[in-house]
Simulated scan of single mutants.
Amino acid sequence: MSDDELHRRLASYEGRAATVSGRGPDPVDPAMIRHWCEVMGDTNPAYSGPEAIAPPAMLQVWIMSGLSGPTARSAVFDELFSLLDAAGCTAIVATDCEQDYLRPLRPGDVITFDSVIESVSPRKDTRLGAGHFITTRTEIRAGGELAGVHRFRVLKYAPAARPAREAAERPRPVINRDNAGFWEGVAGRRLLIQRCDGCGRLRFPWLPGCADCGSARWTPIEAQGTGTVHSYVVMHHPPFPAFDPPYAVGLIELAEGVRMISNITGVRPPEVRIGMPVRLEFLRAGGEQWLPVFRAAEEGP
């Protein structure tokens, strides 16, 4: 099938229903609003109290179906994806979304929605591979009243052949006048954090002034090098010649109370756990470049 013929068939799905009479799995919920605000660090008083509204950016949250998968998706949507699969476009990646907010959502609102396949692009060549962008348009209602519109775009593509991996050094850190002292410490195999001379607060990453008291005076102190995994992700994509996925990137809480992002070594990525004790070590990343990383430590008695 030629590219033009394939696109004509794909375009015939435009305007057809992707979801019919969808219903949010739960009403708008104060607990979910609180969790969202804590994760985002959003302290806007509009999102708490007896007159609370949901943050507008949570619009999609109330229609997500979870691991069980969508229950209201139409057969038409599956047909479109099957056609692309048959054409070799077997991979998918989300690219972007757009949202319009028409009225605030409040705790207790019951959410319903319908969506259509708004557009299917002609063939596009990307670094990931050649494929088609599919845009769905979802109208989200609260109590039957239109509350927002959510456009979601994915690329369904045929994965491009990967070139042979070449040896490469890890990217060099950006060193400037504000963090040069930190990297000088790393070069000497020392992990330095800052202590404000005004209020005594410890901080990392390095900053020119204290966020608490505003003092521009500080003293570098050497961290013990012990800590725990506060949070982490396992990176599988995108591939990069200097890295060998999968690998774990952790938010490490140091014994001093500050947190830093670094690799977790000495353990298989699936075995990393929140709360896991780690210990600092230094990784030579080519030439004279050293990087601080954290190796999984033995649990104490």
Rank of each mutant, 00 (worst) to 15 (best):
A94K: 01
T71N: 05
L84C: 11
T95A: 12
L84R: 00
S68R: 13
L83F: 08
L59Y: 02
C97T: 07
D78L: 04
E79T: 12
G66S: 06
L84D: 02
R73V: 13
S74Y: 04
D78P: 05
A57F: 07
A72R: 00
V76C: 12
D96G: 10
L67K: 11
T90Q: 11
A86W: 01
P55C: 09
A75C: 06
P70D: 06
A72F: 00
L59C: 05
A87D: 08
D96N: 12
T90I: 12
A87I: 01
S82Y: 02
R73E: 15
L67V: 13
L83S: 07
S82E: 14
P70F: 03
M58S: 04
M58W: 05
A94N: 11
G88M: 07
S68A: 15
D96L: 08
A91Q: 06
D78S: 09
L84P: 00
A91S: 09
A57C: 09
W62C: 07
W62H: 03
D96I: 01
S65F: 03
D78N: 08
Q99R: 09
I92K: 03
C89W: 04
D85N: 15
E98N: 12
D78V: 02
S82T: 11
V93S: 07
P55I: 03
V93F: 01
M64T: 13
D96T: 12
C97P: 01
A54L: 04
M64D: 10
P56C: 13
C89I: 02
L59V: 03
F81V: 13
C97L: 10
A75S: 15
C97F: 06
Q60C: 09
R73S: 12
I63Q: 00
P56H: 14
T90F: 06
E79N: 07
P56R: 11
